[in-house]
Measured scan of single mutants.
Amino acid sequence: TSIVNVSSSLNVRSSASTSSKVIGSLSGNTKVTIVGEEGAFYKIEYKGSHGYVAKEYI
């Protein structure tokens, strides 16, 4: 489990790309479970499925 480190919110994306669809967002200090990594993104558990967040904010 890791913590989201942002002051406002962090986009959760459908794939490991800044141009991919935003499927949701997480607020600062939210706990997330990392299940993998791809480039500059972590794959996380998100709403019963998976999403991707930028590593620099975790």
Rank of each mutant, 00 (worst) to 15 (best):
S15Q: 13
L26Y: 03
Y57A: 13
S49L: 11
K55H: 03
V35R: 04
Y42R: 02
H50P: 05
I23H: 02
Y42W: 10
V6D: 07
H50A: 06
L10M: 09
V12Q: 00
A40K: 10
I58V: 10
V53Q: 00
S14V: 11
E37R: 05
Y46C: 04
I44M: 01
V53D: 00
I3C: 14
V32Y: 06
T33L: 10
G28M: 14
K55N: 02
I23G: 00
S15H: 14
G24H: 03
V22N: 03
T1F: 05
S17N: 10
T1P: 12
V4T: 10
K43P: 01
V4K: 08
I34H: 00
T30D: 12
S8N: 11
K43I: 15
Y46V: 02
I23F: 02
K55A: 04
T18Y: 14
T30K: 05
V6M: 09
K31T: 12
G51V: 03
I44H: 00
Y42N: 03
V4E: 07
G24W: 05
V4L: 08
V32S: 01
V6F: 06
S19W: 06
S14E: 15
L26W: 02
K55R: 06
F41L: 01
K21V: 10
G51K: 01
K21H: 10
Y57N: 10
V35F: 05
V53W: 01
G39S: 04
S14I: 13
Y52R: 00
E45C: 12
Y52S: 00
I23W: 02
Y42T: 02
S20V: 02
G24M: 06
E37I: 08
F41C: 04
G39C: 06
S15V: 06
Y42K: 02
E38L: 06
A40P: 13
E56Y: 08
A16K: 02
L10F: 09
E37G: 04
Y42A: 04
S27L: 13
I58K: 03
H50N: 05
R13L: 15
T33P: 03
F41R: 00
A40V: 08
A54P: 15
K47D: 11
S20K: 01
T18K: 13
Y57H: 13
V32A: 04
S49G: 15
V6T: 12
L26I: 14
T1I: 15
Y57F: 14
V4R: 08
I34S: 01
L26V: 08
E38D: 09
R13T: 09
S7V: 12
E38M: 07
S20W: 03
E45T: 06
S20G: 14
S19R: 11
V6P: 09
Y57T: 08
I3Q: 09
V22M: 06
G51S: 02
N5Y: 06
S9Q: 11
I44K: 00
V6R: 08
I58G: 03
V35C: 07
L10E: 04
V4F: 05
S49D: 08
S8P: 09
N5P: 09
K31C: 14
I3Y: 09
Y57W: 09
I44A: 00
T18A: 14
R13P: 01
K55C: 04
Y52V: 00
S14L: 14
K43D: 02
S7N: 12
G36K: 04
Y52G: 00
S9A: 12
T1G: 12
N11K: 14
V6H: 10
S20P: 01
S15P: 01
V6Q: 09
I44G: 01
V35S: 04
N5F: 06
S9K: 13
T1Q: 12
K47N: 14
V12C: 05
N29D: 09
K21N: 10
K47Q: 13
G24Y: 05
I58N: 03
K21M: 12
A16E: 02
K43Y: 06
V12M: 03
A16V: 04
S9R: 14
V35P: 00
G36L: 04
L26P: 00
S25I: 15
S8W: 09
S2R: 15
L10V: 15
A40M: 10
S19A: 12
T33N: 10
K55E: 01
A40I: 09
A40F: 08
A54K: 14
N5K: 12
T1S: 11
T30N: 06
S27Y: 09
N11L: 15
S14H: 10
G36H: 04
V53I: 14
K47P: 02
E45G: 04
V22D: 03
A16P: 14
A16L: 04
S19V: 08
A54L: 15
S25F: 14
S17H: 10
I3N: 07
S15R: 11
S49H: 09
R13G: 04
I44V: 06
N5V: 15
N29K: 11
N11I: 15
I23M: 07
K43C: 08
K31H: 12
K47T: 04
Y46H: 04
R13C: 07
G48S: 07
S27G: 10
L10N: 05
H50W: 15
S49K: 10
V53G: 00
Y52P: 00
V6I: 14
A54T: 05
V53E: 00
V4Q: 08
E38Q: 08
A54Q: 14
N11E: 15
N29F: 14
V35N: 02
A40C: 14
G28D: 08
A40E: 15
Y42C: 06
K31Y: 13
S49R: 11
I34F: 03
K43M: 10
E45R: 07
G28T: 11
S7Y: 05
I3L: 10
S2E: 07
A54S: 10
K21L: 11
E56N: 07
G36N: 04
S8H: 15
K21Q: 12
Y46A: 01
E38T: 06
K43T: 04
A16M: 04
R13E: 02
V32G: 01
S27M: 13
S15Y: 06
G28N: 14
Y42P: 02
I58M: 07
I3K: 09
A54F: 11
E56V: 10
S27Q: 12
V32T: 03
S49I: 12
S49W: 07
F41N: 01
G28L: 12
V32C: 05
F41K: 00
Y46W: 12
H50Y: 15
